[in-house]
Design a protein around this nucleic acid. Structure first.
Lengths: 129, 129
DNA sequence: GCTAATATATGACTATGACATATATCAAGG
DNA sequence: CCTTGATATATGTCATAGTCATATATTAGC
């Protein structure tokens, strides 16, 4: 199954772009290299997210014919994007506190020894609802 | 602004229901009391989430005329729901590791002393895009 | 010319959440 | 009896976010 880390792609893109301009395909590589996202990033989702961010004034883009292969749309973070990135750093720290509280409660309810199940599979088949 | 903790409501509901049957309005109180969610929970969102969860066989509900006021729909976690809860405990622990990696990278890029901004406000007004 | 890798983009669908609004029950006060 | 407020569930509409599939174009290697 492996549910997505909702809303985490945007802050990750801002973080990588804060170190310098970059383009879509390369951003995917960076996210994998830094292990900021486990598993593969959906390319369609990536490009639409970047476009949305441009619409929100978080990044700006120009087409570039440098490098081999098809032209690249190179994104650059804006001042506004940097502001939001700093904001994200704060809220994500808060988020870990919420999650830690969740995990503590979980162990309190189920007992410290209780196993977590990393391989939940949804078997819709035998679900008569 | 305060962006939502995406996908966190469902696991929280499962966790509270794992301690005993409960109904919508009371679940909101519990989530606030345990500080599992900061800010208010949208009631419309809550009820739709519970219905969705029932459709997925994670909880079951019965109407109850106990207590004062209008009748309550009392939800009870299923075996399948408990399984998913254990799974959530595992993935959420993984999620904190991703977020910690993000925060580390952030401080590496912006410097340890850099302030996080907990009060980002989207001023769409002066955004000419 | 064909194929594979690179690169960007969109269509259709699902999941989650925000904000507003609707409906109903019951208790308390006038 | 009637209004008001608290409780309780539910739906409408929209935005955001992600999945899976597919389309289109460029370039390099054979």
């Amino acid at each position: 199954m492996q549910p997505p880390v909702w809303g985490f792609l945007q802050p990750c893109l801002l973080l990588v772009l804060a170190e310098g301009p970059n383009y879509g395909y390369s951003l995917i590589d960076e996210l994998s290299k830094r292990k900021l996202i486990n598993g593969d990033v959906d390319v369609g989702n990536l490009y639409r997210t970047l476009r949305r961010m441009e619409g929100e004034g978080l990044v700006e883009s120009v087409m570039s014919d440098e490098g081999p292969g098809p032209n690249r749309r190179v994104y650059q973070i804006t001042e506004r994007g940097k502001q939001l990135l700093k904001y994200w750093a704060g809220t994500l720290e808060q988020r870990t506190r919420l999650i830690n509280r969740f995990v503590d409660e979980f162990h309190r309810v189920f007992g410290e020894q209780s196993e977590v199940d990393l391989n939940f599979v949804s078997d819709e088949e035998d679900n008569p609802i």
